[in-house]
Design a binder for these strands. Structure first.
Lengths: 337, 337
DNA sequence: GCAAATTATGCAACCGGTTGCAAAAAAGGA
DNA sequence: TCCTTTTTTGCAACCGGTTGCATAATTTGC
């Protein structure tokens, strides 16, 4: 069925090594030889078996793409970018969906069995320890949307979540709100924790402003909706910092159902700036994450790791900015309250 | 670095074949031997190299998952289901994102280089010829969300798009609308064509009802929004059958911006029943696609193909049903018009 | 208890490539 | 032109497994 190197060698009347060499960049082959081999290969429709070659070269060009965020539309954008970035560099993404089980040992074994060259963990909810396990198993790993650390065990590419928390706090205050609140994602996620820390630290400077805190059970519409309903029943704040866009959209829906006008009666700012935030019927004011940069930087980092085995763990942190849309009242009306 | 079969063999003091055998199901090994080998393997942390074994067995357990729908949130649900279904059966999804280029030859070569056992094309927009090319290259292929054919070249799992078109038409008529319209997806997609065919065929039975047709440029919010704005300016119908949910949501946004109340002033029915259709601020009446069944059936079919090489091409068609939500006026108010 | 039948094990070849090494061919120098 | 240097080429071993076959060890039957 499949045509092999041997077939090409026979047809071209040369040795197998000669064929192998014409297909490996930088090998020593004369032009005459190369032409002969290429013709034979073309005639037979040969293309080298990447897996067989990996056996000797030790490189499969397979990259594990592992995530557990398969319910947040934001991550479709991320998967799109990752798969394309990897493909553009001649790497192939081997997808690992961790939604069901979360036994890291298992995940590592799967990746080992397929001798992936590296793993990119794309998740804001998997714990840092998860990425580390790959590293301990000797697999190069970069954790995109992971938490940076002063003692990094693993390469991390992320936004500055603490600064985002502060930025959200400052933004709400600049709008003149006097009772604001943090409506975070799951408390177990480092992204939630850091955004919380930043938000708290900024609000601490302004004791005259009432602040409250709560958390949605996960990064999803339903969790945001549910939590906001609870808050509305209990007596809501004037404006919220939502855990992420999808939580914020859930919260927004709850506000509207409750008969509140946004941004007149109540406001919210999200985080991510996913495509959907721009949709005219959502029009969410939010903090933009530069995912193109995060992804391309992650993949660049990964390619460096492939050549430069034990590089010192590095954190690449990108900054974010507020995107003004329609869910927070404008600055100049601040005095109206 | 990596511990190999040879290492285990040496530590256990047995031959390499013995080790190989204890790790291949159904091979002949005594209990004593198995225990000895398993201990050694455990001590060393050995796990067999799937790629090396594929060289002799001819099976990689790698399945190419190819799609070009990386901008429609509906497909995140599909990728989630596919990756899990494959994983559950011991298969690994090798993702191929065709959003950029669409050269089938290239796609085939990529899959061949990694000797995937099969390919599942998960796309409602790639042409049938695309899936066929894999088949011609000798790779088992199932096209999920592809078009069924009376002369199938390739295994297909899908819904009955023609019947869905009819169902939408019947649903709109049952609501008493007298001017209805089809707001399809991209005309080049077979899914659009079939839904159109069904819609037309049903409406043809009711010449007294005014019917019009148009198409969005792709399955996206923006395309739906843009097309609906155009229609609103030109004078809209009373109710629409949207190309899919995301197009419908775009159209819905345009309607609301135009100051129309849904479903009082204008109605729309989508297709897919993606998670978002249930969101309270969207609440889209739509036709439900049984994606869990489609996916698990696709994967089942694929696993059969792996053992039973040249099976006759088969089409598995699932039926859909209408999910009543808030974007179509209820049946009993039909007389009000 | 012994021969025959059955099951376990190891040897060696193979899967589809790559690569160090030595021999052959081509190029360069005088 | 002949010798030295450089480039090409093929041989053979190897990557990490699997598997047919022959032999060794067990089990079974009587």
């Amino acid at each position: 069925m499949a045509v092999t190197l041997k077939d090409v060698a026979e047809r071209a009347g040369v040795s197998r090594s000669a064929v192998s060499r014409t297909f490996t960049a930088g090998a020593s082959v004369s032009d005459k030889m190369r032409r002969k081999v290429e013709k034979a290969a073309r005639d037979l429709g040969y293309s080298p078996n990447a897996l067989a070659s990996s056996l000797t070269t030790g490189r499969t060009k397979l990259i594990g793409l592992v995530s557990d965020n398969f319910h947040n539309p934001f991550f479709l954008e991320i998967f799109d970018l990752f798969t394309r970035a990897l493909q553009d560099r001649g790497l192939r993404p081997l997808l690992l969906n961790l939604s069901g089980e979360t036994n890291p040992k298992n995940a590592v074994r799967m990746m080992q069995q397929y001798s992936v060259d590296g793993v990119v963990v794309a998740s804001s909810t998997l714990p840092p320890s998860f990425a580390q396990i790959f590293g301990q198993a000797g697999i190069p790993v970069v954790h995109a949307f992971g938490r940076r650390s002063s003692e990094p065990q693993v390469h991390v590419v992320d936004i500055d979540n603490i600064e985002c928390g502060r930025m959200a706090a400052r933004t709400l205050m600049a709008r003149g709100y006097t009772h604001v609140a943090f409506l975070g994602g799951p408390e177990s996620a480092t992204s939630t924790q850091d955004r919380y820390t930043g938000f708290v630290s900024e609000m601490a400077k302004h004791p005259q402003i009432t602040t409250s805190y709560s958390f949605a059970s996960d990064y999803s519409f339903d969790a945001g909706h549910r939590e906001m309903r609870r808050l509305l029943a209990a007596g809501p704040a004037q404006a919220y910092f939502g855990g992420d866009d999808v939580i914020s959209i859930g919260a927004l829906a709850a506000m509207q159902e409750h008969g509140l006008r946004v941004p007149e009666d109540i406001g919210i700012i999200g985080l991510n700036d996913m495509a959907m935030a721009r949709w005219q019927n959502i029009n969410l004011t939010t903090i933009h994450q530069p995912i193109r940069d995060i992804v391309s930087s992650s993949v660049d980092l990964m390619t460096s790791l492939l050549t430069d085995e034990d590089r010192h763990p590095e954190s690449r942190i990108f900054s974010c900015h507020v995107v003004e849309r329609g869910t927070l009242r404008p600055k100049h009306t601040a005095q109206a309250f």
